[in-house]
Design a protein around this nucleic acid. Structure first.
Lengths: 237, 237
DNA sequence: TCTCTTGAAAACGTCTTACTAATGGGCTTC
DNA sequence: GAAGCCCATTAGTAAGACGTTTTCAAGAGA
């Protein structure tokens, strides 16, 4: 599921983007538009469009007489979904997974609290449905079905918060959850305690108990962090 | 401080981007590359590069035989610093300011907690210095000088957290703080309670008291939210 | 020898033109 | 009325020429 297989432009981006985010060109490296165009066998026009996009992601900077310079990580637009996908697919996947999980631990509890205030009746119903789906598939090697409901659950919470910045993290959280199931070691069945917590969050939101929804969600994210510490301890801090 | 006045490309972007984020073209509106090129008096090449960048921000989508379609807000990359700047400069500034402040209230307490664990001795010193600077300029119409130290304080906390996702929000927080001082009604002097809280956060971080740093920062952000409610109640939720 | 000036080379920036390709809508046909 | 074909439309790609800025080095002068 690359972003835009459409067009030569998207194709080149799908190769060059991951290379840069993987750190194959150290910060300060200089690429030449013409060379890249030749390498990918595309016209300079196409190559220029690719560079423009990379530039808007702050992965590179283009300067006259110098070339296309790779920027240090601290400059990157690390919230760009495309950049996140590239990094998750690449070498510093563990690091990215950790920073995203920490991000979740900050965002989701607050989002859940807001959801308890702002969720529509329909969203409350969706939430309950997702939680029940998680329960239903929590035993007997049904990780895929479980994952679907888990992703949906968190997406509904973030959307129901009513804050667009939170809502936009739905995709990111989904990828983190999917990553946990697909790439990393995952226990045969999800932690029963976590399943229960999801059900309780749905309850709390339905009952408009913001404080409880927040606290329960905090427990979920703390659990996710601990799980990460067990599987891949001390990758960064 | 527009992103890149460099080049025709940047110039067109600085006009078209704000127009789109201001909602001047309702979602589903169709723009034609040729028309835009003619309107801005640039070549189609330049216009195509602009469209590519807008596309990477998910503000528009380009399809053959159709044109450049404006996407609904829910598709936008709302974490793109450029998009944030455009929106802050435009019509839905209040809405953007509110969602960013809510975001702050989720992120900063957690970041402060992490900072208490991870901050270097140098960062602790910087933090104290910033807090003292805030105190020094907290009375007598020195809002500008106060703002400088306030922005620096929060940037250091976010950086010291050691999480790159948090660190990258330094600019955003700075713009929110600057916006509060410059564009919105601001009391003559900053709230003394807030000043004290900053000093205490610096203390807590220095003493490695994560829980206290988190709780104190939570009070700061809650204050910011309340302030927003007083100045511009009920803009969205 | 050091500095300042000047010039040229290098790389991106822009424009133009031509051509290709896909796709949505209208037209025809059954 | 439905299905399928055809074409106008608009973006996608390519190639080449020229402009512009920036850097760096060579040369002139002190």
């Amino acid at each position: 599921m690359s972003t835009q297989g459409r067009g030569l432009h998207g194709h080149v981006l799908d190769i060059l983007g991951p290379e840069i985010t993987a750190g194959e060109y150290p910060p300060g490296s200089v690429l030449r538009t013409d060379e890249l165009a030749h390498r990918f066998d595309v016209s300079r026009s196409v190559m220029r469009e690719v560079v423009r996009v990379l530039e808007s992601m702050r992965l590179v900077e283009s300067r006259r007489r110098v070339g296309v310079t790779v920027l240090p990580i601290c400059e990157w637009n690390v919230y760009d979904p495309q950049v996140i996908r590239w990094r998750l697919a690449g070498a510093d996947r563990p690091r990215q997974l950790r920073s995203l999980t920490v991000l979740r631990s900050a965002i989701e509890p607050v989002a859940a609290g807001l959801a308890a205030r702002n969720a529509t009746a329909e969203q409350c119903a969706e939430l309950t449905e997702c939680a029940l789906g998680m329960v239903a598939h929590s035993r007997g090697q049904q990780l895929e079905a479980y994952l679907v409901h888990d992703m949906a659950f968190h997406r509904v919470v973030l959307t129901a918060s009513g804050n667009e910045m939170f809502a936009r993290l739905g995709d990111v959280v989904a990828e983190v959850l999917a990553g946990r199931t697909h790439h990393d070691v995952m226990f045969d069945d999800p932690d029963p305690a976590a399943v229960t917590l999801h059900v309780q969050v749905a309850e709390a939101v339905r009952e408009r108990d913001a404080a409880r929804a927040e606290e329960l969600t905090r427990q979920i994210t703390v659990g996710a962090l601990q799980e990460l510490d067990i599987l891949a301890p001390r990758v960064e801090f």
